[in-house]
Simulated scan of single mutants.
Amino acid sequence: MPDAADRKIIHVDMDAFFASVEQRDDPALRGKPVAVGHAAARGVVAAASYEARKFGVRSALPSVTALRRCPGLLFVPPRFDVYKAVSRQIHAIFSDYTDLVQPLSLDEAYLDVTANRRGLPTAWKTAKEIRARILEETGLTASAGISYNKFLAKLASDQRKPNGQFAVTPDMGADWVETLPVKRFHGVGPVTAAKMERLGIETGADLRGKSLEFLQRHFGSSAEWYFRIARGIDERPVNPDRERKSSGSETTFDRDLTLDAEIEAGVLGQADDVWAWCERAQAFGRTVTVKVKYGDFQLITRSRTQPGVVRRHEDLREASLALIRSVLPTDKGIRLVGVTVSNFDKPEEEEAALPLFGAR
């Protein structure tokens, strides 16, 4: 493995991926504010075009709020099978340049191009060629960040969005980090950013000025990570074999539900979605979890783990029903349910599947 400072890492991030696919496939949507999702009262924006983002429409925003901010917003239902197919095209392009590809989602990935399989003179030219091929083969634009580590490459990919790229070289990394607001840092969420601000930490320079002891006192086990990234240090390798830990699906109902049959039907629908992924990925887990959010936003989960994996569709449905029935009946309206399978077995360790809830 090359020295960390000698690595050439590219972070590729598709531009407004879901919304861009919809605009590509429907010319009537081009140049207009588009949200992928449903306009129902309980709907949530899954993705927004750049035209919609100008109005403050973002993913995870309630649909009613999005329409209030942008009355001309056009909602289109998600087509995840299409997005997955396009993602496979993009990853096939990546594989022409390196075997070291670490997907983060359908629309972004890290690539370690240190080995320079294509013989291109620089990582900058490699990123430029990859982006050109994505545009040619899919009709979509991508942005890229190029640096000597993953943390900086991910930050850099946001710097020239959309349809651009930016490089952070070893001689500029630490100084560049000092100029950025900490709320942009990967691993610093809104809650942590607010806590840092209360402690007088708003920029990378502020963070770098704090001792490791200070950070440990206030941030515990995350302190060393913050201490290192403030200096542009990240020695994590691009890991193409990173295992997926779980697969889940959830839905928000149009109204709060109290009838057992309606709630159970919602859970079974999510179990069916999860099973479709398990079959495609040939990944089967031992733990089934059902998530419930009530109308007052109280959140609970119920889980069950067995020695054997859940390898049959009907077993996952039975497990999900048993878990949701443990909180039924209810007088308290339920607004959201979800199902997750986790604790995957590696193929060589798999045992014969066992019924999740005893003999059938």
Score class of each variant (00 low, 15 high):
residue 7 R to M: 12
residue 8 K to H: 14
residue 8 K to C: 01
residue 10 I to K: 11
residue 15 D to Q: 05
residue 19 A to G: 00
residue 20 S to V: 10
residue 22 E to R: 10
residue 23 Q to I: 07
residue 26 D to Q: 13
residue 26 D to W: 04
residue 31 G to H: 09
residue 33 P to W: 11
residue 34 V to I: 08
residue 37 G to W: 01
residue 38 H to F: 11
residue 39 A to D: 14
residue 42 R to F: 03
residue 43 G to T: 05
residue 44 V to C: 09
residue 46 A to M: 06
residue 47 A to F: 08
residue 48 A to D: 03
residue 58 R to D: 01
residue 62 P to E: 12
residue 63 S to Q: 07
residue 65 T to C: 02
residue 65 T to D: 10
residue 66 A to K: 13
residue 67 L to V: 06
residue 69 R to H: 02
residue 69 R to L: 12
residue 76 V to H: 07
residue 78 P to L: 04
residue 80 F to L: 02
residue 84 K to W: 01
residue 90 I to P: 04
residue 94 F to V: 04
residue 96 D to H: 08
residue 96 D to R: 14
residue 101 V to Y: 01
residue 103 P to T: 08
residue 107 D to L: 12
residue 109 A to K: 02
residue 117 R to S: 07
residue 120 L to P: 03
residue 133 R to W: 01
residue 136 E to Y: 06
residue 139 G to T: 12
residue 142 A to Y: 05
residue 143 S to D: 08
residue 145 G to E: 03
residue 155 L to C: 09
residue 156 A to K: 06
residue 156 A to C: 09
residue 157 S to R: 10
residue 159 Q to G: 02
residue 161 K to G: 04
residue 162 P to R: 11
residue 163 N to Y: 00
residue 168 V to M: 06
residue 171 D to C: 00
residue 171 D to T: 02
residue 179 T to A: 09
residue 185 F to V: 01
residue 187 G to M: 10
residue 190 P to W: 09
residue 194 A to V: 00
residue 195 K to L: 05
residue 208 R to G: 14
residue 209 G to Q: 09
residue 212 L to C: 06
residue 216 Q to L: 11
residue 219 F to W: 13
residue 222 S to E: 07
residue 222 S to P: 01
residue 223 A to C: 13
residue 223 A to V: 14
residue 225 W to A: 09
residue 230 A to D: 08
residue 232 G to H: 06
residue 233 I to L: 12
residue 235 E to D: 15
residue 236 R to K: 08
residue 241 D to E: 15
residue 244 R to M: 09
residue 250 E to I: 02
residue 252 T to P: 07
residue 253 F to R: 11
residue 254 D to P: 01
residue 271 A to I: 09
residue 272 D to G: 00
residue 277 W to S: 10
residue 279 E to V: 15
residue 279 E to C: 15
residue 285 G to H: 05
residue 286 R to N: 01
residue 290 V to D: 09
residue 292 V to H: 05
residue 295 G to L: 03
residue 300 I to H: 09
residue 302 R to T: 04
residue 304 R to A: 03
residue 309 V to N: 02
residue 309 V to E: 10
residue 310 V to L: 14
residue 312 R to E: 15
residue 315 D to K: 02
residue 325 R to C: 07
residue 326 S to V: 05
residue 333 G to V: 11
residue 335 R to W: 09
residue 343 N to K: 12
residue 348 E to L: 05
residue 355 P to M: 12
residue 357 F to W: 15
residue 358 G to M: 15
residue 359 A to F: 11
residue 360 R to G: 05
